[in-house]
Design a protein around this nucleic acid. Sequence first.
DNA 1: TGTACATCAGTGAACGCGCGTTCACTGATGTAC
DNA 2: TGTACATCAGTGAACGCGCGTTCACTGATGTAC
Lengths: 214, 214
Amino acid sequence: MTPTSSTALRRSRARRGEGERLREEILEAAERLLIETGDESAVSIRAIADAVGVTPPSIYLHFADRNELIFAVCEVQFGHLDEAMQKAAAGIDDPWERVARRGRAYIDFGLSNAEQYRIIMSSNPGDTPERFVDERLSQTSAFSHVVEDVQAAIEAGQIRYQDAYLVSTGLWMLVHGITSLLIAKPDFPWPPVDDLVEHALGVYAAGLGVVRDE
Amino acid sequence: MTPTSSTALRRSRARRGEGERLREEILEAAERLLIETGDESAVSIRAIADAVGVTPPSIYLHFADRNELIFAVCEVQFGHLDEAMQKAAAGIDDPWERVARRGRAYIDFGLSNAEQYRIIMSSNPGDTPERFVDERLSQTSAFSHVVEDVQAAIEAGQIRYQDAYLVSTGLWMLVHGITSLLIAKPDFPWPPVDDLVEHALGVYAAGLGVVRDE
DNA sequence: TGTACATCAGTGAACGCGCGTTCACTGATGTAC
DNA sequence: TGTACATCAGTGAACGCGCGTTCACTGATGTAC
């Protein structure tokens, strides 16, 4: 499993001015390793360099240290999550329906990309590099889109609470709980996943007093 | 922070027949290290041995390998969680109130013991040793106590759903989501924690159609 | 059209580290006679 | 009451490993003259 010797052919050097190409290749290889090994600690500078077909010091041409590289991977994943949620809500008018679809998209993303989800949501805080503010921003962008839809649902009289931020936070907690527990305890005798998701979202929606337009 | 040289005095050797004492000391030291460093990977065989005041090979007198040791630590933590939840429900008659108190106790336990909570709930599956069945059992004991109370609440007509197992699972998802997200993202601009917990539990209770006895 | 040169995209070798684990051992302690 | 001996609770030294990171370097490529 672990590549002890070079598994990739030596990569051909980028042409003048195309040095940035390596940065993308590094990020892609890191993501691939993360998915394949299912273990963040297996995503080492050396393993990445080997996967790209380059020597370890080359990594430092584009990232200050390992920590920055891992955060860059997270940044990409937050982008994917946001995209998936935006796509799920696209073309839907009913505000609560938009929220619910975002929620299901969130869960789907997490379950389909378990390792990526794990590192963006369970990573140890405290070792956050300076670019962390950007990271935090993109993290929040998916969230703030939810807040907007929740606000619209409140204004449409679909939800009986008034604090869109509080409601959105509660929803995040719920979908995160579903996603992360299913990922962390795959052997637990869960009820069928779809039933579970629909039950939990249904209960929460009922508790919010959701009234649909239709 | 990391103890590079011996930080503890050499421990005096146990008397004949009291070899098991070391096992307890190892588990306590491992837990202490986990709390102090906030990082599972810092809880190494060598660091534990150092903290206990013993040489690394001594660990192998009581644990087959590092993995078994870490799982033993988890086992202890699951016991603590179950105790905390049992204590919270003790002396309460109203079934739903018992469930709600268990839920708050769960969240309190997780927030007060963040690192322990992290390892028991986010540990990588797949490297589970043979004694895993026991571990799984103690994990489930806290859960099955909830199922019992939920069943009682259903029978008392407090909840409008009929499947106690499904309802309990949903509740676990919710409280786990609250706990783990607060731990994982301490810098996020959360609403006040108490408000958040009461809001989320309140919404969920309302969604379950909870009717109180009083 | 030819050549010197700066720059860019990397390489190769090495550093020191902490890790899990194994192995042969030691020395105090209790027990049998 | 004294002594040989088995056992128990550890020790000390070493193994091989993969890791992040640094450093001085190389050699192809494009540009200026």
